[in-house]
Design a binder for these strands. Structure first.
Lengths: 239, 239
DNA sequence: TGTACATCAGTGAACGCGCGTTCACTGATGTAC
DNA sequence: TGTACATCAGTGAACGCGCGTTCACTGATGTAC
């Protein structure tokens, strides 16, 4: 290798990158097949065609593997939703909301175990390191709150005045601050808008989870039920 | 033992009943400490002061133990909520709703792992037998729908006309039918009332889960946030 | 261009662990006569 | 009331399993001179 800054990566670096990608891929597959509690270093190594101890070259242990998968799941979800949202007409907040909601559900149906990993029961004996997970976790809810804030700023529709919003001690995330810089003054973001955004988000997540986790009665049409819940969430957000 | 129908239970029967109760109790404690995935027959037997194989006299295997705990959790939740609800003024639907919501959250905070067991990620490799679980699972949502139906029947407030309700293929549960026999004709229960009840339920469950599973930002006051969500649910239910 | 050394990916054996479930058994409780 | 038999709760040993993690090792890739 020369001293040039743009040195070509050697065989070793290439292989490592490839294995690292394969590792995440296999991890995801195992997650999908056995759930988070059943994710095992040994099983992943087996599928990777390696001896278990080899994985410790890539990951410090089971917990780090879990953390990576959690980050990957949040990122995948965020990417999917942001991409869908970008295709909606920017000046039609209701369309933007609807697109977001559908993209959320679609991703969840396509990645049920990854959804469970981030929105379901926390994995026992595992504590997610906040520094790594909170940022990717905030992308979608921040987007949702942003839609509400846009409507509020434009004065097109005022969120329904549920009592109690003003007393809420709520804090816009840094993410939201970043996103809205120059558009909505985040510190001027009214509590109502934030509270309604969070609540709409809660309802959407709850609706998806109830479908995915099988808590609905057997007789309902899941898509219709979700659409109805999404309409209610829309009403919470926009009034 | 004589042939008399009310034969006094012998020592054996008494002991069995005691052990059976203790078994559930220890199971619940293990659930609380290690989560559903960590529930093990061996560990429970250890705490019971028995050899592992002895448990097979009481339970056909790990899955049956889980099923019993699930039923126990639903029953405990149902009892708590129904009892609280009974203390609310019968002719004040908003108070009844509010009482129900608070009782729901209170039970969840007191029994987080049991909540996770029934409303969280399904336990991998385990399928809950519907015949045993659906009935106790329906108690609380049926109660909630019932509140909405009462309001609707009284004509006091009409649920907000979210579009889409009429196309929903929804079915009132037998439970609801039973509960409302003679008060509201269950078959005449309008889809809107049922849809709004289900959605309000979804929001309440989602709000509790988001608090319990740690999906809220760290800066919020959980009780206030839940109250706000409950107010939104109230609006969905009553208009 | 060639050689000596350093880095690093992956091996293979081993550690100690807890798990669910089976089986033949003992000894106490219950039952029929 | 007493005896012979049946039921049943709990024992103890054993089965085969998969797990996370450690360690000293080999052999290939990279680097300095």
């Amino acid at each position: 290798m020369t001293v040039s800054a743009s040195a070509a990566p050697g065989v070793r670096a290439l292989r490592r990158a490839a294995v690292e990608a394969e590792l995440l891929e296999v991890g995801r597959r195992h997650l999908a097949e056995h759930g988070a509690a059943g994710l095992s270093i040994r099983a992943v190594a087996r599928d990777l065609g390696m001896v278990p101890s080899a994985l410790f070259r890539y990951v410090s242990g089971r917990d780090e593997l879990l953390t990576r998968l959690i980050v990957a799941a949040y990122t995948s979800l965020g990417d999917a939703v942001v991409a869908a949202h970008a295709s909606a007409p920017p000046d039609d907040p209701r369309a933007r909301f609807w697109t977001l909601a559908q993209a959320l559900r679609a991703w969840a149906l396509a990645h049920p175990h990854e959804w469970a990993l981030v929105f379901g029961t926390p994995v026992p004996q595992y504590e997610a390191p906040g520094e790594q997970t909170t940022e990717p976790a905030t992308v979608v809810p921040a987007l949702l709150v942003g839609i509400g804030a846009d409507v509020y700023a434009a004065g097109e529709a005022s969120p329904p005045p549920f009592p109690g919003a003003d007393e809420l001690a709520l804090h816009a995330t840094e993410h939201l601050r970043g996103r809205d810089a120059g558009r909505v003054n985040p510190d001027a973001l009214p509590p109502v808008a934030l509270a309604n955004g969070i609540t709409a988000w809660t309802l959407l997540v709850g609706a998806v989870s109830s479908e995915l986790f099988g808590h609905q009665g057997p007789n309902h049409d899941p898509a219709q039920l979700f659409d109805y819940a999404a309409r209610c969430a829309e009403a919470i957000l926009f009034g």
